[in-house]
Design a protein around this nucleic acid. Structure first.
Lengths: 154, 154
DNA sequence: TAATTGGGTACCATTTTAGTCCTGTATAAA
DNA sequence: TTTATACAGGACTAAAATGGTACCCAATTA
């Protein structure tokens, strides 16, 4: 299904929740309550987001989490790779020259290009977009079609 | 990692192999040999591709597999969904109204839009592109950026 | 009718994922 | 300085998905 893991899904929801109140410091327990998810799981997710540099944490009373930078400077790709590691469709999309089947494969190059296109797309969607109540209007139908078609002839 | 499953990867490689010799009928054993993968696994993959209508099979001596339609009419999205099911980034990208967290989620709509954009991208890449030895040149950097930027203002 | 080749199913091993818990450490307020 | 708050890190377990294998059946052709 090319699906995000559930934790990544949680991460996006939690990040969006924080992004809607950027000034406040958010305790893990409050966030868990707000998004209706088990506290330990949310906590785990938050730690991963801190380690990836997307959130800043403050210990002690009145502590909590806040965005490490403005929501407009945090991308969907950032959130995904914070939880799942780098966005890559295949093994060989990440590290070059480690697949022993490369000789018989014959699709590696093009998969990597598709993978790159998806990564770029995900980098163009920011947390500010995701958190906005106004739906992000991606005019997917025509423009992306035209991109790949022109790409073929190029 | 937003990664394809290994079987999906195999499927793409096998499909590309068949696409390079569209007239011939390809026995599972021959394909397994050509792409250097275990026979039973390749066989399993082939069956899934048949069930999805991407390959046609012929039993008996001189039988084998061939493309059900031209390589230019088979998309990356077809291959992925043949193995993994519909392309969708989150649970709620597929079926509307089944997520009980929708009220507190707040990102569902926009995730669905991103998911749709990726699906459209994958539908624009055909097996003919993947199988081509000439790299598919997707000019990802500028055009896709401009799409999403214009999308925001739209 | 025998040889070839795909079809289907069931099964097992492994890995990944999700979720929980426990203990430690930093901070702030009383 | 004490105490309550809240994050940090890691270990552990349970469950699910994935990948791989084996076996037997069905169809086709020579």
């Amino acid at each position: 299904m090319l699906k995000l893991s559930r934790l990544t899904d949680y991460a996006a929801v939690v990040m969006a929740q924080i992004a809607r109140h950027p000034q406040a410091s958010h305790a893990a327990a409050d966030l868990a309550e707000a998004v209706q998810l088990p506290h330990p799981t949310v906590s785990k997710t938050l730690k991963m987001l801190v380690r990836a540099g997307l959130l800043a944490s403050q210990r002690g009373a009145q502590g909590g989490y806040r965005l490490a930078r403005p929501a407009s400077q945090i991308t969907a790709a950032d959130i995904i790779s914070a939880i799942e590691g780098p966005v890559a469709m295949t093994e060989c999309s990440q590290a070059q020259g480690e697949c022993e089947l490369a000789a018989t494969c014959g699709v590696a190059d093009n998969w990597q290009r598709v993978s790159l296109a998806i990564r770029t797309l995900l980098e163009s969607v920011t947390l500010a977009h995701l958190a906005a109540s106004t739906p992000l209007k991606l005019p997917v139908q025509l423009p992306i079609q035209s991109i790949s078609l022109s790409a073929v002839s190029a």
